[in-house]
Simulated scan of single mutants.
Amino acid sequence: MTWDVALILGIDGLANGAVYLLAGLGLVLIFSVTRVVFVPFGDVAAFSALSLAAFEQGRRPATISLVLTLAALAVIAEVVSLVRRGEAARIPRAILGWGLLPALPCALAWAVAGHEVPHALFIVTAILLVVPITPLVARLALQPIADASVLVLLIASLALHFLLSGLGLLFFGPEGSRTAPLAEGGLTLPGGFNVSGQVLLMLAAAVVLSGLFFLAFERTAIGKALRATAVNRVGARLVGIRPARTALLAYTFSSLLAGLIGVLVAPVTTMYYDSGFLIGLKAFVAAIIGGLVSYPLTALGAIAVGIVESFGSFWSGALKDVIVFSLLIPVLMLRSAMTRHPEEEVEEIDQ
């Protein structure tokens, strides 16, 4: 391997790492607030990419039908829950929140599909269209078991992935799509190396969004409420913070991140209904490196995953995923060695 090849692979790894960074932030946000390892994160990103591709082809995206179906089911579930608790007066509010609000981006998508509008409007609409998916899915499947163990929540989240993957096949079909580049031109580095505008956009998006997340958590009341819930759910409830509401915010923000990831990766790879699974899985590796709690370590883990994947594809394209997932072994061994286990504490007390 020459230095030229290493530089090209390094740039490609940074671009992949930027995507995994954003996905890892979403996964850590959801887990820290709700204790849910949200496996279907990548599926939402794939739906965003397929929605943008449908807009560019002059078709109405099937995401509209998917969101409206989930919204109708969420409204029914919420109404039934309110009636059982004797809170029928809150039904209009439930219909507004779980039915009408998710329908707004669907109405926007229906209006712009098939018309000559600025491409930026297609991008924004594709992102907004998938934002309701994660909160709606969480309301239907995860909120009723919010107090269950982490293992039960993980099993439910895995089942949700297979459900969304099947719905993706049903609504979108098996065909893949790729969208037009979001940025033209590029940057020429010393030595004659060209970095495409799309790669620069992915890197810039990761840096800017990471900075915005930091500012939001440090400077805003919503960010502080999310942090408080992540640190101590009981303590947050005692000071007036509702974990159910912060969980809804976490799902919404993560869904927004997934939508952004979808439109960023759609121009550089052909996206299918199930293409998001590997994106989410590799982001999960980055999140594990961060212990599912540390955003800076997750960012470093994402960059490491991207670079390892890039160089691994050079050495063996068939084994690149195996090489990436093998990173989990030393990380888990190191964390196990550094973590005090309850059995060890009991033994110390007995002695």
Rank of each mutant, 00 (worst) to 15 (best):
I95R: 10
G168T: 09
L101G: 00
A156D: 12
L140A: 10
L101K: 02
P174A: 03
A180C: 10
P132A: 05
E116V: 06
V130S: 04
A141M: 10
L129K: 09
E116L: 01
G114A: 02
G168N: 09
T125D: 05
V124H: 01
L154R: 15
S177I: 08
E175S: 11
L128K: 07
L104W: 09
A109M: 09
G99P: 02
G173W: 09
F122C: 14
L151E: 15
L101R: 04
G173Y: 04
L154T: 15
A109H: 02
R178P: 02
I95M: 07
A156G: 11
A146C: 09
L160G: 07
L100S: 01
V117K: 05
V150K: 13
S177L: 10
L140Y: 07
T134H: 07
V131E: 00
V124Q: 09
P105G: 06
P102H: 06
H161S: 13
L154C: 14
L128P: 11
I123E: 03
L142Q: 08
V112A: 02
F162T: 14
V152P: 15
V131T: 03
L104K: 03
L163W: 12
A126F: 03
E116S: 07
V152Q: 15
V124F: 02
L158N: 13
I155H: 15
L153Q: 15
L101V: 04
A103L: 07
P181R: 06
L153N: 14
W110S: 12
T134W: 06
A120G: 11
A138D: 04
H115C: 03
T125G: 05
A111G: 10
P132L: 04
T134R: 10
L100E: 00
T134N: 07
H119C: 12
L100N: 00
G173T: 07
V150W: 14
V131W: 00
C106Y: 01
I123R: 06
L129W: 11
L158C: 15
V137L: 11
P144L: 05
A146S: 12
P144N: 08
V130Q: 00
F172C: 03
T125F: 08
L129R: 08
A103V: 05
G166T: 14
Q143K: 11
V117F: 01
P132F: 05
R178Y: 04
V124S: 06
R178F: 03
F122E: 12
V112L: 03
L100G: 00
L164I: 10
I123K: 05
P174E: 02
D147Y: 11
A103N: 07
P174L: 01
S157D: 12
G176L: 01
H161K: 14
L104V: 05
S165G: 15
A109N: 06
A159C: 13
L136I: 10
I95Q: 08
P132W: 04
L154D: 15
F162D: 13
L128H: 09
V130P: 00
L96K: 01
P102K: 06
S157N: 14
A107M: 09
S157P: 11
W98R: 07
A159R: 11
A138C: 06
H119L: 10
L164Q: 07
F122D: 12
G168K: 03
L140H: 04
L104D: 01
L151R: 15
R178H: 03
A126Q: 06
V112Q: 03
L158K: 15
T179A: 05
T179E: 01
P135T: 05
A156R: 12
